[in-house]
């Protein structure tokens, strides 16, 4: 017997809540065959602004959490994603037009990526930090710390969930908070991921997901003075050089676009790209 399904309203994910775009705009998300799937919120510059505010206010708590705690929270995302595999597989199949095997491989890979990055949370400092043997009576230690608020243009290619996870997970490891502009044509798994994040232990505002037009939103993020870093991994089709120039106004750290199946491949370098090395000197004396 056929039950009439209840479709989901896809909204933004900002500050741990799911608001509609303040602009009231939506855009049609279509399947690969061109069928209507949903109306996604078409985020505006003001939504991006709100997302940055949310990310900034969440930064202290997230960056200040213990590394062990951040690792557990990231692992918790994998657990919850695992529990909702079916939903993500469905969304990927319909929006990306791939079969169940391909879709489930993507979801599996996304889950494994959370696990991989979760494990780095309490290790990257050891690998990237240093005790420095200075020639004087000083204790001297260098440690990487989170850069701050990272704005990300998510990969716009075919693997919408994996691309998103690959971009945001490494930024979160060190304790950065994130504003991410989702895959424009396949935004559904992004919002569903927001639901996973909202029900895992990720504090509100640590990840903020804006759907809509990267071309429209990215310039506002690139020029926003309260954004510390800009990951242009999915900005290859935008005028990304202009974005990079704009980001130079406040000396943001910028990662350039990547394309192809290797885009945002898991790497320690992606974690370290959004860290700042801090060196602390302290005098040493027994007298």
């Amino acid at each position: 017997m056929n039950r009439l399904a209840i479709p989901k309203t896809y909204k933004l994910y900002i500050g741990g809540k799911f608001p509609r775009s303040e602009s009231g705009r939506v855009y049609e998300v279509l399947s690969h065959k061109g069928e209507f799937l949903a109306n996604a919120a078409k985020g505006s510059r003001k939504d991006a602004r709100d997302a940055v505010v949310a990310a900034r206010s969440a930064l202290g708590g997230w960056a200040g959490a213990t590394a062990y705690n951040r690792g557990q929270v990231l692992y918790r995302i994998a657990e919850l994603l695992e529990g909702r595999r079916a939903q993500f597989i469905d969304e990927i199949m319909s929006s990306e037009g791939v079969n169940a095997a391909v879709a489930s491989a993507q979801v599996d890979e996304a889950i494994d990526r959370w696990v991989w990055y979760a494990g780095w949370a309490d290790k990257y400092v050891q690998v990237a930090g240093n005790a420095n043997p200075v020639s004087g009576p000083f204790f001297n230690l260098s440690v990487p710390e989170p850069t701050g608020v990272v704005a990300i243009i998510a990969p716009q290619g075919t693997e919408s969930l994996l691309g998103l996870v690959s971009a945001i997970a490494p930024a979160l490891v060190a304790g950065n908070t994130v504003v991410v502009v989702a895959n424009e044509t396949a935004p559904l798994s992004a919002i569903s991921l927001g639901e996973v994040l909202a029900t895992s232990d990720v504090p509100g505002g640590v990840v903020n997901i804006v759907t809509g037009s990267p071309a429209e939103i990215a310039p506002w993020l690139a020029s926003h003075a309260d954004v510390n870093a800009l990951d242009l991994v999915g900005a290859g089709d935008l005028d990304w050089v202009e974005l990079q120039i704009s980001a130079a106004d406040t000396l943001k750290r910028v990662l350039p676009p990547e394309t192809g199946t290797d885009a945002a491949a898991p790497a320690l370098s992606r974690i370290l790209a959004f860290t700042e090395l801090k060196t602390v000197w302290h005098t040493k004396a027994i007298l």
């Binding site: 004087g136 009576p137 000083f138 005098t283 040493k284 004396a285 027994i286 007298l287």
Partner: peptide, 14 residues
């Protein structure tokens, strides 16, 4: 009284 007097950092003093 004596413990209320500011301390000395030996490295800086030397």
């Amino acid at each position: 009284y004596l413990h209320g007097i500011p301390g000395i950092d030996a490295v800086g003093l030397e």
